[in-house]
Amino acid sequence: MESFLEHLYSSFIVEQRYMLILHGLFNTLIVTLGALVFGFVLGTLTALIRSSHHFSKRFRILNICATCFVYILRGTPVLVQLLIMKNVIFAHLKCHSILIGIFAFGLNSSAYVAEIIRSGILGVDIGQYEAGISLGFSSAQTLKLIVIPQAIKNSLPFNQRIQLLVKRDCNPRQYSHNGSNTCCRSYNVAHIFTFGLFCCSCNLPNYRVYCFFIFKQISKETAKSTFRGLKLCKT
């Protein structure tokens, strides 16, 4: 039986195996950031189309397309979408697998982000919209100046999408590029169960903890306009 220190040595030091984890971590972060940006932009656009139709009954065709987009992407497993991207859509294109991952995860995330942002917009009291309209603002101006700034506060929970993007990085194996979890599978099985997975599951550094504290601070800042927030914030 190997001792703990021998496990440590053979898991990380021999053949510079720690580089594999670091490489996987780097790829994970790249895919996460790329998917986050792409998903946020596309999701916001989708949410705005659907919300505009809700308030002003315009963009009917676009709304139908956006609705189908959201329901199809939310209704199919991300693994299926990833396989379709890799083996069908990008099969004949010489595209780096990182880009495929960004596109696939971003597309999937955009559907969820769209629903989160749309629910944030619709969560704003209808009286806010009517007050803007009654002063003479157009529907677009009212959404831009009054509704969406308030909806952003309601939509802050989308930080959970960031954490999910990181956790799901185990799927990159399907498009054959190493994420941080996949790297563990490169090890000897004995090492995986004794040490490798244990270290990766600790998520060094722990992104979820960082995300939690970052968004808690953002929530505190944006809550300054609410009465409850004023008690928490020392203004």
Partner: peptide, 17 residues
């Protein structure tokens, strides 16, 4: 027209932000 005919609501509807 609405700029010249403004409305005050029962529930105030001040812009919270």
């Amino acid at each position: 027209v609405r700029q010249k005919m403004c409305m005050v609501f029962q529930q105030f509807n001040l812009f919270l932000n």
